[in-house]
Design a protein around this nucleic acid. Sequence first.
DNA 1: TTCGGATTTGACAGCGTTGTCATTTTTGGG
DNA 2: CCCAAAAATGACAACGCTGTCAAATCCGAA
Lengths: 330, 330
Amino acid sequence: MSIKTVSRVLNNEANVRPATRDKVKAAVRELNYVPDVSARSLAGQRSYMFAMFYDTASEGYLSRFQKGALDACRDANYHLIVEQCRVGAGGTADRLAATATQLRVDGVLLLPPVGDTEEIVERFAGLDIPAALIAPAGETFGMPAVRMDDASAAQEMTQFLLDSGHRRIGFVKGHPAHGATSRRLQGYSNALREAGLSSDDMLITSGDFSFESGVDAADKLLSLAEPPTAIFASNDDMAAAVIRCAAERGMQVPVDLSVVGFDDALISKATVPPLSTVRQPVETMAAAAINRLLEATGSRAMSDDASVANRSYEYQILHRASVASGPFKV
Amino acid sequence: MSIKTVSRVLNNEANVRPATRDKVKAAVRELNYVPDVSARSLAGQRSYMFAMFYDTASEGYLSRFQKGALDACRDANYHLIVEQCRVGAGGTADRLAATATQLRVDGVLLLPPVGDTEEIVERFAGLDIPAALIAPAGETFGMPAVRMDDASAAQEMTQFLLDSGHRRIGFVKGHPAHGATSRRLQGYSNALREAGLSSDDMLITSGDFSFESGVDAADKLLSLAEPPTAIFASNDDMAAAVIRCAAERGMQVPVDLSVVGFDDALISKATVPPLSTVRQPVETMAAAAINRLLEATGSRAMSDDASVANRSYEYQILHRASVASGPFKV
DNA sequence: TTCGGATTTGACAGCGTTGTCATTTTTGGG
DNA sequence: CCCAAAAATGACAACGCTGTCAAATCCGAA
């Protein structure tokens, strides 16, 4: 029983007699043997490692995404290296590429806004390391991408506000570096346009997904001479900030102001009233991204699911108590 | 200029002539060379990798901790592998040990409740892989531990409620597997005892750090014949749930009920009114844990800071609007 | 200028796997 | 029962570094 035979068994290669295979497996269990990942990646062409690059994800997004990715990795006996970076800073593309190279990872996950950054995406397109883009904005250079139809979700949510009778609907944008930001704004605008409403630039404020930026945006919107009767914030943290601001001004949500968010973050259940929001299948998307990388590595049979390249994932609109309907003055 | 000399320069070893060193560095920059981590860990005795094992951390905790750890890793040119596990499940200790071994990591971070699980901690004590325990409950087997004085913080917070005139103070416990859970309860009890109050078991409810468990606990406490005038929840998610429940019952916080939490999670700023809470230096503790591992690996000079072994980290009590004072009926 | 010791550099053998290819064993047909 | 082809197994180099130790170079003092 040579060392090579053991290797064959552990890698599930063909041409090993069942009896031998069993004997090896027994010994492995007996000795509690685990193959050394470093040696494997040095000698073979796989490292059993993926890297996940992110900048700043909202708390809930990071933990949900990471969970989905880790579950998928575990199933495939892979490990996940996480790395934080600043997409704005110079040399980030080089550093990420260098990291992926020296780590010999079999693939990388580029979370937003990393996968939205052309310089970085282009860099990985030039490397021969598979990269999966999560919710990217622009050019994918033929790389696998996993995304949700943010525009439709935002449009649907806006439509819901319109259906509830709202005509002046404020919008709080997300972080400009994220692809989702423009797609969500797009959906909002589409809904207004289809309803025959002219969009009022005063009603569109900028934000960066942070609670604080939501406070600023809400202040601006609620101080308007003609304030909106509903506000759609690009994520729940900012929506919660809007609710908080409204409360401070003595406004009652949803009586005086309807508010909706995006993400179904934990915070959306804690606000009073709870927020209507959009739930993304974050864990599923993370797992899908890992599976794409696995396919690229050739370690996973192309499933039907996978053959639907770059498909969009289903969102879900959660109706909670933060929206009121009624006739509003125009 | 042999390959060995390059190795010496990259590892900052002594006995390389400055001129040689410069030449090598120039070439490295020129060729964009990065040493292969797998080869390094196979040949040498360091892998430049740490592993972080966690079960389920609250969203905010995970992202803050991970950030602190990653920042510290980056400074030392280390990488971080994350792995999720279920401490309750059988064989977890073996699997974690196997993972750490096959990965050749230079150390592991055991987050709560992983580092609270005797079986797992004991397993790592037997391995020769340095392990740092984060906020552990029990025996540390001589391993480096990084913790905060949860008991003092909870006691101080409870004292604050007492000082505000509250005499019936409800308590919502955290997840029983976490060491912090009993320490926080301890602090609460201590404060009551020192105030000469007999503790009422009816006022102590169980929870598991989740929002939902907070709802259940709040329902129980607020349904009491003699309900508390203040509730101390072991974390902010549960405290937010308490506020939400109170609101649903038509109670005004803090007029009818004072609520305090623990963690300074994002959610604590979103509640109406915002929560008084305890802020832990999570990032600092994570960085400290990494530094301990670095010391254990011998790659970091023992700093003064470090010589204070297993010291506690400073918390901060944040006073926000969720507590009212006044005379309450006893 | 020369010598001895200290400093700097390099040659070479692994580290624990996998890939390649040769060798051995098994299998089935005549 | 023998032989060829197929299947199973093993020998060995290589992956890109680091550790060890020997060789080369440098330095200052006599």
